[in-house]
């Protein structure tokens, strides 16, 4: 693989491989992105600085923000109530702007497990968790999660007891869901920051559970 123009070993700063088409020849669609961006700048729709700032803002969003919200809900019952009543307002309380979309938090309990999908496209609480993973946008996840959720969850390594009720939430362009995973056993006395470290992205989509301490 031609790779002589980079000073790294083919991995991004977070250790994932770049998509193959980053390093290979200029694709038609990449050329279109450059052309569209330059024309939008020339026509006064956006500035290059705005594009760069928007990318920085998106890069700064990560599942850590959602994890902080979940950990707060675990330690503060009043906040938990506010979060379940109005996810957008409760997130804003913590300084996280979730934008114009309505954010709905759904809580896992001993008896109920929630999982989130977008069957129509790729709607995702991106302002709280960052951009969705590839599999979230895949045909298989979109199609099957509402049809055979337990089987899909098993593919993620999550085996739920038969007695557990599984609730599948289908997101829309105007309404996004985040799962508040159940607080793991043995975490009594842990502080909010330590608890947040147990909250994974997958547990907030509902294809996983929070890590054990």
């Amino acid at each position: 693989m031609p790779h002589d123009h980079h000073d790294h070993d083919g991995l991004s700063p977070s250790g994932h491989p770049y998509r193959a088409d980053q390093d290979t020849g200029l694709s038609y669609w990449q050329a279109m992105e450059i052309a569209v961006r330059e024309l939008m700048v020339e026509k006064g729709i956006v500035t290059e600085a705005e594009v760069a700032a928007q990318i920085d803002a998106m890069d700064a969003r990560s599942p850590a923000q959602g994890a902080a919200v979940v950990a707060r809900a675990w330690v503060d019952p009043a906040f938990r109530d506010r979060l379940l009543a109005d996810g957008s307002a409760a997130s804003a309380e913590m300084g996280f702007d979730v934008g114009p979309m309505r954010l709905i938090a759904v809580e896992n309990t001993e008896d109920v497990h929630n999982v989130v999908v977008c069957t129509l496209c790729s709607c995702y609480p991106r302002n709280l968790l960052g951009l969705p993973p590839d599999w979230y946008k895949s045909r298989a996840y979109r199609s099957r999660t509402v049809r055979e959720p337990r089987k899909v969850l098993r593919e993620f390594g999550l085996e739920l007891p038969e007695a557990t009720t599984v609730r599948v939430h289908d997101s829309t362009a105007d309404m996004r869901y985040i799962v508040v995973p159940a607080r793991p056993a043995g975490t009594e006395g842990m502080d909010e920051a330590a608890l947040a470290a147990l909250v994974t992205r997958d547990s907030m989509i509902g294809v996983g559970v929070a890590k054990a301490p």
Partner: peptide, 15 residues
């Protein structure tokens, strides 16, 4: 496509 049949969920992810 909600409710359609499909293969396994792909595990791949990329930056």
């Amino acid at each position: 496509m909600g409710g359609d049949l499909a293969g396994p969920v792909p595990g791949d992810d990329h930056d």
